[in-house]
């Protein structure tokens, strides 16, 4: 996306999410801040348990946040907000879930699944209007309008994921959170869904937050990537810069784990394993620093020095 008209669409500021009881809390997301610009695809990468899904869910207000705030178009959408605002946010921010086998109501027809959100947000909608919208959404994701009268079990995984996307699209959203939308799919179907997401972005001017654990997919689809480890963002950069100069050892470990479809290079590859003990933060505390334009990394002074050397070489 063009970087000259960088308008911040969503801003996460100092977000903290805790789970568990008060006596025994577990901090899933630890003071995370980032901005997402209008029209871009922002990637959030990390292992299971890193808190990447929690961030997505906290933005869409499935999980309550315990610190910090989320701004959408400059207005706060976390915590207590007015009813009108709530409805507006529900419409503008939508989510696509990971497992299409589990995220569709087995007992409802596609027609209902896709338009369920409309029942809540646009109450005065006539039946005819609603049906037209369902048809539009299904066509937009490459399904036939006739599918509306069928049940989810009649569809394959890729088609189900398309239904999930149609369900998000019908609300006319600006911002879509895609939580590992392709990791449960076959390789060949993955490509179809990725292409579809890219097409829809162009067509409707959508902004995506793309959550995944697989960097190979991220390189293909995202404009900027944040790497998150144990609830802390360790590196954030434009995609190509991140792949050209991965600085943080955790990012490098993630990159080296991508399987290459090339036997000779793959066999020669050295697998890097990230050990959090490699950081010595007892004396020098880590900082969040913009080390080159558009490339942020977390580290203490000696580490940052090392990173700068890597960049210069």
């Amino acid at each position: 996306m063009a970087s000259n008209e960088r308008e911040v669409l969503l801003s996460v500021q100092d977000m903290t999410v805790d789970f568990g009881s008060r006596r025994n809390p577990f901090r899933a997301v630890n003071h995370v801040s980032f901005d997402i610009y209008r029209g871009e695809t922002f990637g959030l990468v990390g292992e299971s348990g890193s808190g990447k899904t929690t961030i997505g869910r906290a933005i869409i207000r499935i999980n309550p946040i315990s610190g910090g705030e989320v701004l959408y178009e400059g207005e706060r959408i976390s915590g207590r907000i007015s009813r009108e605002k709530d409805r507006e946010v529900t419409r503008k921010i939508q989510m696509i879930f990971q497992d299409p086998m589990a995220s569709l109501n087995e007992r409802a027809k596609v027609d209902y699944i896709v338009s369920e959100g409309l029942y809540n947000v646009q109450k005065g909608l006539s039946e005819e209007e609603r049906r037209r919208k369902v048809e539009e959404a299904l066509t937009a994701v490459g399904l036939l309008p006739e599918f509306a009268s069928r049940f989810p079990h009649e569809f394959s995984g890729g088609q189900r994921q398309r239904i999930g996307i149609a369900r998000a699209l019908i609300m006319g959203p600006q911002f879509i959170i895609a939580d590992e939308p392709i990791s449960a799919l076959d390789v060949s179907i993955r490509a179809q869904v990725l292409n579809l997401l890219a097409q829809l972005q162009k067509k409707y001017g959508l902004t995506y937050l793309f959550v995944a654990h697989d960097l190979s997919v991220m390189r293909f689809i995202t404009d900027r990537i944040a790497v998150i480890h144990k609830g802390v963002i360790v590196e954030l950069s434009e995609t190509e810069k991140l792949f050209a100069h991965p600085l943080h050892p955790y990012t490098r470990a993630l990159l080296s784990a991508i399987p290459l479809p090339d036997p000779i290079r793959e066999r020669a590859k050295v697998l890097e394993v990230y050990d959090p003990a490699c950081h010595d933060y007892s004396v020098e505390k880590p900082e969040w620093v913009e080390i080159e334009e558009g490339h942020f990394v977390r580290g203490n002074k000696p580490e940052l020095e090392g990173y700068r050397k890597v960049l210069e070489s």
């Binding site: 390789v187 993955r190 390189r219 991508i258 479809p261």
Partner: peptide, 11 residues
């Protein structure tokens, strides 16, 4: 199958 691998895709 090979072509659909995202590792080989062009952005």
């Amino acid at each position: 199958l090979l072509s659909s691998l995202p590792q080989l895709g062009v952005k």
